[in-house]
Amino acid sequence: MEKKVVLSFAPELTFRSFMNDIIRDYNININIIKADIEIAKGGKLLVTLGGEEEEIAAAEKFLTDNGVVINPMGSTIKLNKERCIACGACTSACPSGALTIGAPDWTLNFNPDKCIICKLCVKSCPMKLFSVEFAE
């Protein structure tokens, strides 16, 4: 089977060779369709994973166990900014630096380009203002 997914990497994960690992250890046929990633900055890979169903599942488990976030193509995080109180709780949880708060105005900034869709903000927002949306 073949599966198209987005792999998102936090900055510290860019120093490891995950693609090599899943080809060698999990027998995965990988095709990188689009890469938007930089060493030490993090980013995303749009890939197709090819192989037996169990092999793909095992490779995905290996990746997620090591902190790589796997999402279906086109999923994005939406924020209901109107109700945001600018507390900062989401920025505390956000591992990729997509959500930030700080001087001078201490309002919330959301940079979707940096978002790795780990969904920690969905859980962490005390006002429950984040949601995951899917669009092909």
Binding site: C87, A89, I101
Partner: peptide
């Protein structure tokens, strides 16, 4: 250690 607030300075102001 990265720090972040839990209370809103924006609203406090």
């Amino acid at each position: 250690i990265r720090t972040a607030p839990m209370s809103s300075l924006y609203k406090a102001r």
